[in-house]
Simulated scan of single mutants.
Amino acid sequence: MSSSLCNYGALALECSATLSQPTLARDQAAELAGHVAADLARLLPGVEQLDLGVAAAAFDPAELLRPGWPLHATLAELVERAPGRGMARVLGFGSHEGEMPRGLTPDPVLREGPLRLVPFVLQGEADAVVAVGREMEEVLLETGMAQAATALYAQQAFGTPLEHVRYLSLNDLLAMTAMQYEHAGIGPLWPLIETALLTPEREEWLDAPPEPLLHWNQGEARIALMDLPLWSEAGFAPRGIDAERISQAYEHFQMRQRQFAAVLGSHAIPLRFDHCGSGQDPRRAVAD
Rank of each mutant, 00 (worst) to 15 (best):
T18Q: 15
D107F: 01
L44A: 05
G46Q: 09
D172W: 08
A234V: 07
F260A: 08
L168S: 05
L228H: 08
L44D: 13
V165I: 05
E137N: 11
A73F: 11
A157N: 05
H96K: 00
D127Q: 07
C276D: 09
H183E: 15
I223C: 11
A29N: 06
Q123C: 07
S20C: 03
S247L: 14
F158G: 08
A178E: 14
Q156E: 15
G133C: 07
H164P: 01
I269Q: 06
A10T: 14
G133H: 08
E48V: 03
Y167R: 01
Q155D: 00
E99P: 01
F93H: 05
S20W: 00
M255L: 10
A261Q: 14
G277N: 09
S278I: 04
E77M: 06
V54P: 00
E137I: 01
L52F: 14
V129Y: 07
T74Y: 09
L264N: 03
Q156V: 05
L230M: 11
A146G: 09
D107I: 00
G103Q: 08
L213K: 07
E80G: 08
A285Q: 10
G68Q: 05
Y181G: 04
A261C: 07
W69H: 06
R89V: 04
A234S: 09
I223R: 04
P83R: 11
A249N: 10
T23Q: 12
E220T: 03
D39G: 03
L104H: 04
P191Y: 02
V130M: 14
H215M: 06
V109L: 11
F260G: 06
G53Y: 09
E99C: 02
L197Y: 09
A243K: 13
P200L: 10
L19Y: 04
L117W: 07
H35W: 11
G279R: 01
E142R: 15
L197M: 06
G113H: 11
F59E: 05
M255I: 00
R89G: 00
R111D: 03
G84C: 10
D107L: 00
A29C: 08
F273Q: 15
P209K: 01
R26C: 12
L43A: 09
S278P: 00
Y167I: 02
W231K: 12
E112N: 12
I186C: 10
I241A: 05
E244D: 15
V47K: 08
Q21S: 04
E99A: 10
V139I: 10
L115F: 04
P83M: 03
L225Y: 06
H183W: 15
A57I: 06
M1R: 15
R284A: 15
A82Y: 15
E203S: 14
P238N: 12
L198M: 13
V139Q: 04
P209F: 00
M176T: 10
Q259K: 06
G46H: 12
E233L: 10
R202Y: 15
W205V: 02
P114W: 00
G277K: 12
E204H: 06
E99V: 13
A41M: 09
P200G: 04
V263D: 09
A285M: 12
S2C: 01
